[in-house]
Amino acid sequence: MKNPLDSAALDAAIENVHRAGMPGLFAEVRDGDRVWRGAAGVADVATGRPVTVGMRHRVGSLTKTFTAAAVLQLVESGQVGLDTPIGRYLPELVPGERGDAITVRMLINHTSGLADYLPYAYPSLKALPDLAETGPQSLDDHRLTRFDPTALIEMGVTAPAVGAPGGTPGVYSNTNYLLLCQLLERVTGTTAEQYITRNVIERAGLRDTELPTGPYVDGPHSHLYEAWFGMIDPPRDYSVFDMSWVGPAASLISTVADLNRFYGLLLAGEIVSPSSLAEMRRTVPVVSLEGKTGDYGLGLHPMEGPGEGTFWGHAGSVWDGGALAMTRADGKRQLAIAVNMQRWNKLDSSGKPQPHPIDDALATLYRVAMYG
């Protein structure tokens, strides 16, 4: 048997991430009918309450796969054209020549050239390469701020472009996905949250997954801690946070079991059609928020490793919480993991994040989980 599910190795690998400095994490690995679930560390550093594998969790940009799937369903029904200019649908949000040049596909695969609105919505938070000038003050200022999505989109659209429409490498931008949410609303006459819930979350039979409307995580969950590159020491709890700053671009709450179920069904062609799934797996080079260039499709990215087959899924990060879900192309091997701290790497004098033991420990956990 190839790549066996080695429970002892997985137990050791997840414990090592906690020992490297992660307060708490939990994961589910599937290999056909075999399932391993594990957790290590604490959900509350003040009380020592342990994390458990069934906890609900903010999964960040894994949300983008759900949003992309919802848009592709509208493409299948003929209500949206994948290569139609966004200006045809939302002329007031992306006016003029850019509205004519940027297609729906370019929004989904981050080749629109539109800048991310985040540094404008959170003035103290800088992106690469300006991390040396950054600070966490905006997180406290905007913990309960209710952002208007069209105001956030305007920040991204009016900011200097980061590329030409359709040019590669693309640049990852949350502005793209807030526009896709507005597209969903314009075409369906319902909110993006309602449409994604009904047509993606419920269609997949996910019982512990939701797009929140308030600042709280309902049900059993971990506290979530933000270190902001060592500038918040000890890391601060931002579990209660208004998620309107990302909406259905990155606000999803889910569990590791639900994430594995969703990506398994998606890659089996049961959430979108096989032809839509093929479009989702057509990749272009895209520069991430961390400044790394990798392949990105339509709300999916691949992960190659030393074992057999390509894995498809998404990584996610919000203030304080992170997640990764990857499913092998044949659907038989899956990993979903949630961590309760973010931005643990400290910066050097030039503002570049430095290696941390958590990085190597997580890489080992991914390798053991995906390739045995």
Results as ranks from 00 to 15, higher is better:
244 S>W: 10
179 L>Y: 13
268 A>T: 04
181 C>H: 13
230 G>I: 09
193 E>W: 08
338 A>S: 13
346 K>A: 15
193 E>R: 12
122 Y>T: 03
241 F>E: 13
83 D>L: 09
152 L>P: 04
167 G>A: 14
52 T>V: 05
268 A>F: 05
5 L>S: 06
356 H>N: 08
311 F>C: 14
185 E>V: 02
236 R>D: 08
214 G>D: 05
103 T>I: 13
371 Y>A: 01
352 K>N: 11
170 G>E: 05
155 M>H: 08
112 S>M: 10
194 Q>V: 08
134 T>G: 15
149 P>V: 09
238 Y>H: 08
246 V>T: 15
145 T>K: 03
43 A>D: 02
286 V>H: 00
182 Q>R: 12
52 T>W: 00
56 R>L: 03
270 E>W: 09
88 R>D: 13
181 C>I: 08
321 G>T: 06
86 I>M: 11
188 T>F: 02
109 N>C: 15
131 L>D: 13
59 V>H: 04
133 E>D: 12
355 P>K: 03
129 P>D: 06
339 V>G: 15
189 G>T: 00
31 D>N: 03
306 P>T: 08
42 V>I: 07
157 V>R: 00
297 G>N: 04
277 L>S: 03
273 S>E: 09
67 T>H: 04
328 R>M: 08
243 M>K: 01
282 R>Q: 14
61 S>F: 00
305 G>R: 09
161 A>L: 14
282 R>L: 13
170 G>Y: 04
276 S>I: 00
360 D>R: 13
272 V>E: 07
30 R>N: 05
